[in-house]
Nucleic acid binder design. Structure first.
Ligand code: ZN
Ligand code: ZN
Ligand code: ZN
Ligand code: ZN
Lengths: 168, 168
DNA sequence: GGATATATGATATAATATAACACTATGAAA
DNA sequence: TTTCATAGTGTTATATTATATCATATATCC
């Protein structure tokens, strides 16, 4: 089945509870390997492990939650351990930071340098990652009119996801 | 001169260095008075003072910077003093929180409950507040398609303002 | 191997935000 | 007018998120 252009603009939807969680972590790590190899970046064990933990959490996760998990295998991990790995992963487009949550989430399309919009559920903190053309163009147009140049278009919108609407 | 529809969608532009700073603080406080009176809210001296300090800073300001200024007149002000006032001002649409900066900025149109988009300069931390129809609609359309309901549409875009582009 | 840059370890501290409980002022109910 | 209830503020302590700094290790290049 061919993906419509509309589907491609949804980089990561709200998660169906059905999908194969283990596999999506494996795929994400493989994609990261590819990106780093291509760009000559050193994807060290620490960085890989942090990325794995982020994907395993399967949603935005905070730096200190990450640190706690990391300590299961690295007893003396400290905040800078995590923050340095996060910096590397962000600089190279492997994860995004969600400002509204002070949390970090795996990027659903790391091989492509893309703008991103996040829909963030205020109840369950799940997020959807989009690269919606219309939103992007509307933002670009207005920014241009004001002489504002967008370096990395990251849009965050807070609301309520469908699951929470049904549940609450 | 009549405002175009386009102008109305720019709630607060990047500041021209020429405008009358003192007057815009006065106007903002007057508008807040009006809003609170209309809604039966108690606009206490503390809350007024915090709002004044925010407008006086004339751009996004952090809670602890605010606290420091507040202490000039309230020697024993503490973090909760500021955060409670900020909560009140946010709940009632008199200020916005800029997540990307951990900072607070006066709302340019408090009498109207509106969606907002912020263009945030990563170099000088200035912001422009917009209520762009096209951005709003594009976001709404996509959210709807995903079953996501937006409660308060707040969009934050990071980049570089025209002044900084010229200066750097 | 020695020089250089990159990555991590380790300790301390900064910056942002909230919890908890006490006290005061205000205004309505009795 | 007393009493009660609520909203607002004071005060102290603590939680959460992020960075600075210096030391050590590891990889890369010549
Ligand atoms: Zn992405
Ligand atoms: Zn939800
Ligand atoms: Zn506003
Ligand atoms: Zn600027």
């Amino acid at each position: 089945m061919k993906k419509s252009s509309d589907d491609r603009q949804v980089i990561a939807p709200f998660h169906s509870h059905a999908h194969d969680h283990g596999q999506c972590v494996v795929d994400a790590i493989a994609a990261a390997e590819t990106c780093c190899a291509k760009d000559g970046l050193s994807f060290t064990p620490l960085r890989r492990q942090v990325l794995e933990l982020i994907w395993s959490s399967h949603g935005p996760i905070g730096a200190y939650d990450l640190l706690e998990k990391l300590r299961a295998s690295r007893r003396n991990a400290a905040p800078p351990t995590v923050y340095r790995a996060l910096d590397f992963l962000m600089e190279n487009g492997l994860i995004h930071r969600i400002e509204s949550l002070n949390a970090y989430v795996g990027c659903g399309d790391p091989e492509r340098h893309h703008g991103a919009q996040f829909l963030i559920c205020r109840d369950c903190q799940c997020v959807a990652e989009l690269d919606d053309d219309e939103i992007g163009k509307a933002v670009t147009r207005r920014a241009k009119a004001l002489g504002f140049s967008i370096h990395q278009q990251t849009v965050e919108v807070v609301g309520q996801c469908a699951d929470c609407a049904a549940r609450l």
